[in-house]
Design a binder for these strands. Sequence first.
DNA 1: TATTGTTATACTCTATAACTATA
DNA 2: TATAGTTATAGAGTATAACAATA
Lengths: 154, 154
Amino acid sequence: MASAATASAEHEVSIGNLDRLVGYHLRRASAVVGNDFSRALDGTGIRQVLFGILSIVKANPGINQGAAGRALGIKRANMVSLINELTDRGLLDRKIAAEDRRAFSLTLSSAGEAMFDECLKRIGAHEDRLMSDLSSAERAALIDLLSRIEAKER
Amino acid sequence: MASAATASAEHEVSIGNLDRLVGYHLRRASAVVGNDFSRALDGTGIRQVLFGILSIVKANPGINQGAAGRALGIKRANMVSLINELTDRGLLDRKIAAEDRRAFSLTLSSAGEAMFDECLKRIGAHEDRLMSDLSSAERAALIDLLSRIEAKER
DNA sequence: TATTGTTATACTCTATAACTATA
DNA sequence: TATAGTTATAGAGTATAACAATA
């Protein structure tokens, strides 16, 4: 006894087996959040990846590109232009690492700190808005479930 | 009293505030699942988007490109080459819709049905593997939570 | 006028291979 | 030899604008 499809804007369109796939819902939910993230940070020029870098540099001052990229799942080759973008904008300071002259030591500039704080404030509001239908226990449970899937990376 | 970071491969790298952001974990988990999806369907030439289209056409025989794209969050312009790819490979049948001569009516060919079944089988195993640390209740709860976030699309 | 499908185009993200300079 | 950063390049995914045919 499948319940009749509720009359929606598009007449009777089912997504079929997709509806039971975690991967499909991850993709869609991630896209919804990503789009709203962009709107929330509109005018800052900061995108999801860039905020990730600011966050990891803030948490690990002096970290180098490779380690930051590894922690974020970004390939070294792709880190180059991202780090350039942030240093060119004056948000990151980059200097040759004392212990390893091949590496760059990254820190947030004061402009970077300010940008980080502004973004974090907006992101907090953005997440609260999108997660408004979840209790705080559900929100924590969601993060826990997602982390357990992330751990399956290979 | 923050607990000391467990000694991991990379020495003491924290992702900072990212760890409390649903959006970050959605991105990472979605990437992990997407990568494993690719490996699972290796050799079929079917990617996540393409499987989505096969699934919706199977569930809604005769649907047109626009409606399928709308249900999947794919722009009409981007549907064109995706549908071409599937029809060129003989997986989809496309014919001018009787009721609206502007539109194409899409159905799975028998090769498309076979491909869908094969993919669904592999995807089932892939999801079971990735979700092996979640109970079935947790897996259902996860899909429910993600659906509630998807509903926030605008 | 609005909608279906189309073309052209561009930007972001991601992936690989080959190079340099240091270790 | 291995690693840090770099360059070049390619393929996906996604976004917009403008057009023809049909509604």
